[in-house]
Amino acid sequence: MKVVSRASIVAFLLVLALLVWVGSSIYRAGYTTGVGVPREQPIPFSHEHHVSGLGISCEYCHVSVTEASFAGIPPTYTCMTCHSQIWNTSPMLAAVRTSAATGKPLTWIRVHDLPDFTYFNHSIHVNKGVGCETCHGPVDRMPLTWRVNTLFMSWCLECHRAPEKFIRPREEVFTMNWKAAGTEEGKELVKKYGIAVQQLSDCSICHR
């Protein structure tokens, strides 16, 4: 009898561990986090085409990225700057034209959605040398946009604890496929840009 009860306790613990493992796997899977899953949009907008194919800079559309918390989603007007003349009868862009005609904004589906209890500001990151691709990945090769990072707090902290491993010169922030020359440069940039590493993992940096 004692053996049976011992065995059942062990079995119960094993099942519990299995459940925790399955739970955390689901929690970290692309299915839950959206990592690697192209997001369906009202218009199949291709960053790959506009960035790699045409050479349009990130800032052309995301105009407030160096100055505001929000990088900015372009208004329909920005789309129409070119698409009033080219591809202006394409059925694919019918929704853009409707939006331009009615003044009703397009409803894009968010790809990167941070929880509302975190304070995040694009401008400080961009101005301190965090490249677009550091967080957003190779957007210039995404026909439809997806997330390459989980946006878990542990992921944020990887950089907040050791920014020298991730930052680049300000001039290279919008560069895609940038490679660091060496490990020393990052340390110099941390000093040069006045990044207070010891404060970066304070709770109130992100939760305020």
């Binding site: 918390s69 929000f70 989603i73 904004p105 929880p115 509302d116 209890f117």
Partner: peptide
């Protein structure tokens, strides 16, 4: 509850 708070972030 706290993840999606009843407020209007930009856009």
């Amino acid at each position: 509850d706290m993840y999606d708070q009843p407020k209007n972030p930009p856009l």
